[in-house]
Simulated scan of single mutants.
Amino acid sequence: MEDVKRQHSIRVLGAFGTKAKGFGTTSFMLNPTTTVDAGNLLDALEKESIEVENIWLTHSHLDHIVDIAYILDNYFSQRTKTLNIMGLPETIKAVKENFLNDTVWPDFSTIKLYGKDAMVVKYIEIEANKSYQISENETIRPFLTDHTVASCGYVYTIDNASVMITADTYSLDNVKNILETNPDIKSVIIECSFSNNMKTLALESKHLTSELLFAQLNSFKRDDFSLYINHIKPTYRQKIVEEIEAFRGKWKPIILKDEDFVYFR
């Protein structure tokens, strides 16, 4: 039964825009070996994180990459396969130079797996709008988003149904264009990081408030998809949830929390 559930859903490992007790940062499990982002792998998966082989990064901000460091550190001697880290060229460069750089944390791309010849980490640069095969019936396609650093979202497809993970973004123009030309996208995950009184900060940091989010959604020609909201800042969660309810209009958003599932429907 669990296998069937996984085939038709994405497990939310971390749903929030910053870490706090009981709140994990962004990470989605596509299948038992593949995630989008790495904000909350260790707490959510514990020893199961040994099985993670592929991490598709949306961008280089810490809340999306932090647990790469800890799953490698905690389970170094038990890992038997290289961890492939996929991302835009700018994202890979940032991780190599500023994170796993032998100053902040070890450069695991130069360290061999325990008792093996393969390296612990392999970096793979990806191209926006190119489709990549994950398995026989799974593909993933990155698309550019509007953030303060190079950033992408992903369209993840199983058979003929897709989920769009938009990641951190301010403008939804590209999201709108992709949605309106891809009817196979049945569910969409969009951020809403700040309360409406923090609109200036949202603009400066390239994030959304509920007012900004629904103003853009209301211009979409399509509304026949399930809308999921993530990346809420825990400190402002109650206020943001109330504002989402006030501004949602015709939309019926599902506000994500850690360990929820996103369904292909």
Results as ranks from 00 to 15, higher is better:
168 D>H: 14
14 G>L: 14
72 L>E: 07
186 K>R: 14
89 P>W: 11
40 N>K: 11
217 L>M: 10
31 N>S: 12
200 T>Y: 01
208 L>A: 05
101 N>M: 03
110 T>V: 01
94 A>R: 05
102 D>K: 01
229 I>W: 04
133 Q>M: 12
128 A>F: 04
248 R>L: 01
51 E>I: 09
74 N>C: 07
4 V>W: 00
151 S>Y: 03
189 I>C: 15
41 L>V: 10
205 S>K: 06
244 I>E: 02
45 L>V: 13
208 L>Q: 03
158 I>Q: 15
198 M>Y: 01
207 H>R: 15
195 S>I: 01
112 K>T: 12
63 D>R: 12
217 L>K: 06
85 I>R: 10
126 I>T: 13
93 K>P: 06
196 N>E: 04
129 N>V: 02
258 D>M: 08
206 K>E: 07
219 S>T: 14
64 H>F: 08
133 Q>G: 11
67 D>M: 02
143 F>H: 08
21 K>Q: 03
24 G>E: 00
23 F>R: 10
217 L>N: 09
190 I>V: 15
48 E>I: 10
163 V>P: 12
176 K>R: 03
28 F>S: 15
111 I>V: 07
20 A>V: 02
99 F>S: 15
98 N>V: 00
213 L>D: 04
7 Q>A: 13
194 F>R: 12
225 F>S: 06
190 I>P: 02
140 I>F: 04
201 L>V: 04
177 N>Q: 03
72 L>V: 09
154 Y>F: 13
234 P>L: 04
209 T>P: 04
25 T>K: 05
11 R>L: 15
41 L>M: 10
156 Y>D: 08
206 K>C: 12
15 A>F: 02
178 I>W: 00
169 T>F: 00
218 N>D: 10
169 T>G: 11
52 V>Y: 11
221 K>D: 10
162 S>K: 13
18 T>P: 01
192 C>M: 01
148 T>L: 10
209 T>N: 07
87 G>A: 04
120 V>H: 01
180 E>T: 07
263 Y>D: 13
199 K>D: 05
119 M>D: 03
261 F>W: 13
138 E>G: 06
188 V>C: 12
60 S>E: 13
111 I>N: 06
236 Y>S: 11
28 F>K: 09
187 S>P: 13
